[in-house]
Amino acid sequence: MLLSQNFAYYHKMNTPLVAPPKDTRQGSLAVVGMGMTLGSHLTPLSRSHIEQADVIFAGLSDNIVEQWLQRMNADVRSLQPYYKEGKSRRKTYEEWVDLMMTEVRAGKRVCGVFYGHPGIFAWSPHKVIEVARAEGFQAHMEPGISAEDCLYADLGIDPGTVGCQHFEAGQILFYERRIDPSGYLVLWQVGLVGDRSLARFTTSGAYRQVLVDVLSKDYPLDHEIILYRAVTLPIQKPRIRRIALRDLPFVDVPTEETVILPPAATLKPNHEIRERLAALDKLEKEASVA
């Protein structure tokens, strides 16, 4: 049936609309975001996925948010117990994919619920969708409000003004990346920067000193940087601290905090390209007159 015919059918029925019957033999997967703040960010569609699923797998960062989720579905299974100090996070993430796929293969409607946006800094949600689709199951992702979204609102930053680069902080150390100090630089997971074991959940100030040394190639050491944490419960306020770049090794940086470096340089005009564009403008104007 065409989509337009479907709508006509639903209009005739009068609302509320009745969803078409599901094929109960076929497993399916929805991966949804819980947003950052309890009560504020969960979208109606994500909530519907949660309520209609047979089984929920929860990758959340707050115990109370997890208990809130348990009120929406009777079968909520936390992914937290798969973390362990000294165990590679890579193994943990692979186990999460296996857990979700086992239930999809068993014919269940599975919903993976992750805090923030399920597809940002999130390997397992993307991987499980890839695996499910490769095996012929219906699988998709619903976006959520992420820490990045909250950051723009709480700090009054518009990434469109001068541009904004985002990196997991470790990438700045492990790889040769090109930083543009005329835009914003947002560094995630600074609290465990430099961990190569994949088994630690925090690293010391000495590792952050290495990060500062790398950043000092593009930023003065007295450059003001921002440490930010979004709100997970609606009785909290966002945590916003402003310090000099040189002080980063000497302050506590929990893993949930993000480091923002505002621009340290002004945008440099590209005169060559501007002249080329002006020449194009002139050509098009002349062509329109002729």
Partner: peptide, 14 residues
């Protein structure tokens, strides 16, 4: 609600 250590999921991607 008790205190329970919650790890930040998906902390490392590199």
């Amino acid at each position: 609600f008790g205190s329970r250590r919650m790890y930040d999921p998906q902390a490392t991607q590199s």
